[in-house]
């Protein structure tokens, strides 16, 4: 039991750390990326409002 806990636990910890690191980087870079490459899925609505100037 302790063995499975150790293996699964280590993997989960590593995954969580990696996701945290990526979230931090995402905070810094997501605006810049939006600028350069508007996400086709996420910003469909944004495009409409922009055209309403």
């Amino acid at each position: 039991m302790k063995y499975y806990l150790r293996t699964a636990g280590t993997l989960i910890i590593i995954t969580v750390c990696v996701v945290l690191m990526l979230s931090v980087i995402n905070l810094f870079t997501s605006d810049l990326i939006e600028e350069h490459e508007p996400d086709s899925v996420a910003s469909a609505s944004v495009e409409v409002t922009e055209n309403d100037d």
Binding site: T15, V18, V19, L22, S23, I25, N26, S30, D39, V41, A42
Partner: peptide, 12 residues
Amino acid sequence: LVPFDLIYLKTI
């Protein structure tokens, strides 16, 4: 991924 704004996790 999309609804929760987690697109940056796609590769993983």
